[in-house]
Write a protein that binds this DNA or RNA. Structure first.
Lengths: 236, 236
DNA sequence: TGTACATCAGTGAACGCGCGTTCACTGATGTAC
DNA sequence: TGTACATCAGTGAACGCGCGTTCACTGATGTAC
């Protein structure tokens, strides 16, 4: 078995053997999650979208749950990769810059693709995907944040006492913002505003609201779904 | 119509007219959410549990979605109340104590009742429950945190610049911890450990990890689901 | 290069199921006189 | 206090539906000789 005669993956349109049905099903499922939410679609719909009979999926996934689990892991891996790439920054004066950038990648993903991101962290997400021939997992989002904190500790910008468990504090903060945005509990005017909010949140966990540098312009204030409710315009 | 001849609410067992079917359906639905997750149950099951035919529910809710929406609002209100009660503390030296206690109430709720709490904040939760004869809403969890920050600002423990938007930073942090615990992404050894983690998180947003007081004992470290995975024992 | 054959990855019909919702109905309640 | 009647809150049968999954099958692929 030569390495590059893998099986003609790619454009399998119209052929009896699809070529990469597994990947195509994951793609279709991801699109459906995006359009209808984590649970608003069926195995049959995903199969139909790929142009394949419903039973074909069972050659690649043992059940619908297994498909969802595998997708969840794939999304989680992509998020980890994206965060890793965001950290790849030229050396700067500001030691916190990399950590902020990593957090921003996390939050941006939640903002761009709420339902899909929610899937990655959905209740008990990880166990479901186990043992389903999963691709070698990219670093977990938590691990990427953790690595940045290691860097800060190594360069003396975080004391050992503060370093202990700091990953959970920072993860909590970043995840909280991502979750609130993904669930529409707060809204923000575009990705740049999200970035600024992420920056303030991450810096607050490190430096504290009490000690934050005075911003050149005032911090933007997100909108909260519940307070604006009473002030809403007429309902359509 | 006298005020207290409302209609014999309470033990309606065995009678043709239930007395408070609306409330009973909400109770049953809440229990089902607790047992099976936000979407793992049907209107028919909730009706059966109350001992009533499936169609009876339609005299009280226009659809299953309306039932879920109303439940979501009820849970949100109860959480707001619980947080408000937690703030009711004797005056203390530590100005941040009340805010910490409010955050702890939020996180504890998520820990005790993950699925139900998730429902309260679930994707687009608020709009679904609109216009369904909803009880006068208790203060929203965000509002309760907001009020505590007002108190801190008033007593001079938070500068006006830091106060602006601080509610979103603190909500983000508390919500993040609640969400990670509710979804099982991190685990913690019991409610006291959750309280300590909440305290560290809330204090970090105010004071910063850099400036935190040295704890008498080291901060406890939660367990993360993804890092322990590799170190798991044999699978059952 | 050609043929036989095992294996793989599809098909399509069928299964039993429980779902949300509608409908015409009926029993219980409470008010008017 | 008694009766007529409107209203309210239940019943239970029925609807059409799409679901996940199984099964016996078949077409395509790739390897052995």
């Amino acid at each position: 078995m030569g390495e590059d005669t893998v099986k003609g993956k790619g454009t399998g349109r119209g052929r009896y053997h699809h070529g990469d049905l597994r990947g195509a099903l994951l793609d279709a499922a991801e699109a459906l999650v995006r359009e209808r939410g984590v649970d608003g679609w069926s195995l049959r719909e995903a199969s139909a979208r790929v142009g394949v009979s419903p039973s074909a999926a069972y050659h690649h996934f043992s059940s619908r749950d297994a498909l969802v689990g595998a997708l969840s892991l794939r999304v989680l891996g992509q998020l980890g990769e994206r965060m890793g790439r965001a950290a790849d920054l030229p050396a700067e004066a500001d030691p916190h810059r990399r950590l902020v950038a990593v957090g921003q990648a996390y939050v941006r993903a939640a903002l761009e693709d709420p339902a899909v991101t929610r899937l990655a962290f959905g209740a008990g997400a990880s166990p479901a995907g186990r043992g389903s021939g999963v691709e070698p997992l990219a670093p977990h989002p938590h691990r990427v944040l953790d690595a940045e904190l290691d860097l800060l500790a190594l360069s003396g910008h975080l004391t050992p006492a503060a370093r202990t468990g700091a990953d959970f504090v920072v993860w909590t903060a970043v995840h909280g913002l991502a979750a609130l945005l993904a669930d529409g509990l707060i809204a923000v005017d575009g990705p740049e505003a999200a970035d600024r909010q992420t920056e303030r949140t991450v810096r607050a966990t490190l430096t504290g609201l009490h000690h934050e540098a005075t911003p050149s312009e005032p911090w933007p204030t997100p909108h909260s779904a519940h307070t604006t409710r009473a002030a809403d315009g007429p309902h359509p």
